[in-house]
């Protein structure tokens, strides 16, 4: 895949990411090697999980925290991780890891296609509180979680601009939320440059833990396409996927 532009790179990145899940992108030799690595990671996971079950100490809780941070392990071992969490949160009822892990496990179950979006209130750039559900207004809405420091997010947002312009009067909307740290100077500069034509809200210093609630505490961002009834239609769809869905639904 070589299409020259950064936007094309990020679009193709998502296609490649899907192929990588089952190593469909690899040569037979590459696939055999990747499967060996997978099996070693699985064995390492089992060893750690058994350690956790036999040792309900703070070291085990640290290991569990690491498992929860890793999306791939969550996908593969969710039930086991949940079981270990029940064990350790009972052992450490007041520990600060409890909230993080509980929210991460919750978001892992909730942020799925067909489930309802998670509502929140965040300030706009003038400090006025805005509740997401109030702004959906019966439109299909792309929630764009991004940040001025996330190059990939900005490239993705750029690919949405032409779709927004084409469908904004037909029942499509975009709402951005920028995850910023310390202040909004970089965000203001980025918006001045990019001129994204939709409403942008602010998540400053993770005050509302939106990235954790949406299951991406360690990522720059993601997008969610939300249907008129509040159900998630697609997670991080590419621009052409959004267009196909809008063509079908609007």
């Amino acid at each position: 895949m070589n299409n020259g532009s950064k936007e094309d790179y990020y679009r193709n990145y998502w296609i490649l990411k899907k192929l990588r899940v089952d190593h469909q992108d690899k040569t037979p030799e590459g696939k055999a090697l990747a499967l060996k690595i997978d099996s070693l990671f699985d064995a390492s996971y089992s060893f750690t999980s058994n350690y956790i079950k036999s040792n309900t100490n703070i070291l085990s809780y640290y290991f569990l925290l690491n498992e929860v941070i890793n999306d791939r392990k969550l996908e593969q071992h969710f039930e086991d991780i949940q079981q270990n969490f029940n064990l350790l949160s009972a052992q450490f009822p007041d520990h600060s890891y409890n909230y993080f892990i509980e929210e991460r496990l919750k978001s892992f179950k909730l942020i799925k296609v067909g489930k309802e979006f998670i509502d929140f209130t965040a300030p706009d750039l003038n400090g006025n509180p805005v509740t997401l559900s109030d702004k959906l207004e019966g439109k299909i809405t792309l929630l764009d979680l991004w940040g001025s420091w996330c190059g990939g997010c900005i490239a993705t947002s750029r690919t949405v601009v032409p779709i927004y312009e084409a469908y904004k009067d037909k029942g499509f909307n975009v709402i951005g939320v920028a995850r910023e740290f310390k202040n909004t100077k970089a965000l203001e500069r980025t918006l001045e440059r990019e001129k994204f034509p939709w409403l942008n809200l602010l998540e400053l210093d993770d005050k509302q833990e939106l990235w954790l609630k949406y299951g991406i505490p360690n990522s720059g961002g993601m997008t969610l396409l939300i249907d008129r009834d509040g159900k998630i239609l697609a997670i991080s769809p590419q621009a052409d996927e959004i267009q196909k869905i809008l063509e079908k639904k609007l």
């Binding site: 790179y9 192929l19 590459g30």
Partner: peptide
């Protein structure tokens, strides 16, 4: 992973290349 790197360098690890 070192073997992975060697295969990549030899161009026989993946069937799809992605760059810009």
């Amino acid at each position: 992973y070192n073997r992975w790197d060697s295969l990549e360098e030899a161009g026989i690890f993946t069937m799809i290349l992605l760059w810009y």
